[in-house]
Amino acid sequence: MLSVKNIIDTENLTVADVNLIMENTATFSEVLSRDFKKVPALRGKTVLNMFFESSTRTKNSFEIAAKRLGADTVNFSASGSSLNKGESIIDTVKTLQSMIVDLAIIRHSDSGAINYISSKINIPVINAGDGKHQHPTQALLDLFTIGESFAEFKNLKVAIVGDILNSRVARSNICLFKKMGMDVTLVSAPMLMPVNMDCFNVKIASCIDDVIEETDVLYMLRMQFERQEKKYYPSIREYNSFFSLDKKRFMKMKEKSIIMHPGPVNRGIEISEEVMENEDEFIERIKINRQVTNGLAVRMALIYLLLASDQLEKEYVH
């Protein structure tokens, strides 16, 4: 069983939790490869999807994951809700909880919002991304994707490239990757880095060329223009020259290395059009679509495990 009741961040997961999640993800990955992709494990359970911030892949991924487990889903979106009438977030969440749901999946644009909400309600909560803080399901699906390409996590060289400052994906991934023994390097410019870098305890490089030849996993972050209150970088051309993956750099990489990106990709900024449209044998090494597919399996595993832990606890109480 998981040691946590909610999935808020990757920091509080133990290595045993992570391994359990990976094992279950493999099981659900098999379910997703069947012709009939649904199992009735959570029949009669209801999962609430609350997105206070826009999302395509995460929201749909969670909804499909819950449905493939046989659970019912309720979708809440902030626009058109009573939030417009002035109802507070906590009251909104409690109202929906009163409709007897078993688990809530929440995304919010404020860092820490999910932790706060989870402390006010008594059902398990999964953080689907909160501000610049954490996006734990992304980190777990990334880990699973890496596990498909490499025999073990220990000492794998990972380079996380780009907008670290605004990225919740970076925060979740750095923590999880280090927990599993990987060798993490951040590649970014000072203005795209948080002020206190020591707390991450990782290596830092200032140009992608410094690490490209020895990297096993090249993790490109999206430039988060919507979170950048001011312009952090002089020009896209300058960004390209230090941090983008183009064909020339791609060819310098190790034969077995892989490329990842949490999506959506800003083509021509993080990864060049040429690499994205790559039709040759190297296409297998670009894992962006595989990440999305694995996201489904990871989310199925998390929903299943959280409701399982929840159930066990109830049994012990009564």
Partner: peptide
């Protein structure tokens, strides 16, 4: 592996590790 199909899944949910 039939763990997802049991009629008592909800009462006896257990982490699935067996692969069909």
């Amino acid at each position: 592996d039939i763990s997802f199909y049991r009629d008592d899944t909800i009462k006896r949910l257990k982490p699935a590790v067996a692969i069909t």
